[in-house]
Simulated scan of single mutants.
Amino acid sequence: MESKIIFLLVLPPCILFSQGATDTLWSVPQLDGTICYRPGSGIFNMSTFSSGFSPGDGFDLILGEEVFCRDYLAFDLSSLSNSDTSSIIEIIIGIYQINAWGNDMPHTYPIWNMAGGDTHFCVLDHIDYGNSLDLGDWTAGDLGDPQTLHTNIGIISDNAVVEYKTMDVTQYIKEDIANGQIYNQYRMRFTIDTDFDGLGDLLDFRSGNSIVTKPYLAILYNDTTTITSPLQVSLNFHLKQNYPNPFNPVTTIAYMLPKTGKVELTIFDLTGSTVQTLVNGLQPGGSYEVQFDGSNLSSGVYWYRLEYERQIITKKMILIH
């Protein structure tokens, strides 16, 4: 491994250098829930105790009619460790999909038996239903409803793969913080209510009432540290973007150190859980390359973080099998 000595440069006071920090919020169990409607009889029902969400349609065998459901989830913004929106780089929502049903067949994405049925997917609406869920929130997310902040902000699932389904929701959380919202809330639904074929077309997700694989928000900050007195700071502490990216299953992470110091290079997932520590110890100044093998991991977004002499840099990488 080739290495070289890099000289330090004295910088003036009050220089800022970027760092990376992360935060994870889990959805609020008592605010996660499902509302279902039967268009034949006009009957609604609601649950906030289920361990799962099931957006889509089906057939109520007891009442003998079609039923379709919408699901609601909330995150408590007061639990954020840093609510300064200028420091937020990216926020990802993750909802774990455990099954899919198409025409009553498991492991099959919903099949809508109608013209244009293949254009209907499961989407999120950005809403505000406050500190409790009730039947009146059925239309929260519809155009014109006062509780709708943004309707159809994007597709959360378009396939039957069992995994965390993710979406970038940075814009919507920044808006909620700026507007003084206590909760960041969403409705999950299909862009069609029902196709009236008597067959189940729905997705199964974990809710905040689940013991494992709960919905989460993963927040990546660009924190800054102010240097208030003259200090020698290296311009050559650097973490490069992994290559290739996306990768399958091996990628290379390269970085540069200005002098000997304690180094830790860690891989972690969107929930903030550590996946693997690649480097942890003293290293002399120089250039380094480390390979990471994601063979045993599922496809998705991961972060890698380099810590050195109280400086931290975090970058994102994508694994695709």
Rank of each mutant, 00 (worst) to 15 (best):
D137E: 10
L257R: 06
E289D: 06
I89Y: 03
I95S: 00
I95Y: 00
L257N: 11
Y243R: 06
L282T: 12
N131W: 11
W138M: 09
Y72D: 01
P215V: 00
I318Y: 10
L31Q: 03
L31R: 10
Q19W: 14
I318S: 08
I267K: 06
V279D: 08
D76V: 04
I267C: 02
I173E: 10
S18L: 14
T228H: 10
A178L: 11
A254D: 13
A74F: 11
E163H: 03
T251Q: 10
S27I: 04
L149G: 06
T166V: 08
R206Q: 08
F68Y: 08
I313L: 15
L231Q: 12
N99W: 12
A160S: 14
D176G: 05
D125C: 09
G286H: 10
A115W: 09
L270F: 04
D57A: 12
T266H: 01
G198R: 04
V123F: 02
K240D: 15
L199P: 01
T260G: 07
W112E: 04
G144A: 08
K262I: 01
Y96A: 01
D142K: 10
E307L: 00
T191P: 15
Y96Q: 03
D76Q: 11
E66S: 07
L80T: 08
L278P: 09
T170V: 08
N82F: 03
P146D: 14
W138R: 04
H150K: 07
Q241N: 12
Y129A: 10
L217W: 00
K259S: 09
N296Y: 07
D168T: 11
L319R: 05
V169W: 05
H126D: 15
S207K: 06
I211P: 02
V67R: 15
G294F: 02
E66W: 00
G272M: 11
V301Q: 09
S79R: 14
S27Q: 10
L80V: 07
F7W: 05
P244T: 11
P106F: 10
N222R: 13
V290E: 11
L220G: 08
N45S: 15
L149A: 01
Y164R: 02
G42C: 13
I173Q: 05
D118N: 08
G286Y: 09
T139N: 15
N296F: 05
S298F: 02
S299F: 02
Y109C: 00
F237I: 00
G272Q: 07
S298Q: 14
R187Q: 14
Q19F: 13
Q185S: 09
E175W: 15
M1I: 12
T22Y: 13
W101S: 02
K259T: 05
S27M: 11
Y243M: 09
G281Y: 06
G136E: 12
L306C: 03
N159S: 13
P55H: 03
L143R: 14
G58L: 04
D137Q: 07
I15F: 15
V212H: 02
G144V: 05
V169D: 10
S295E: 07
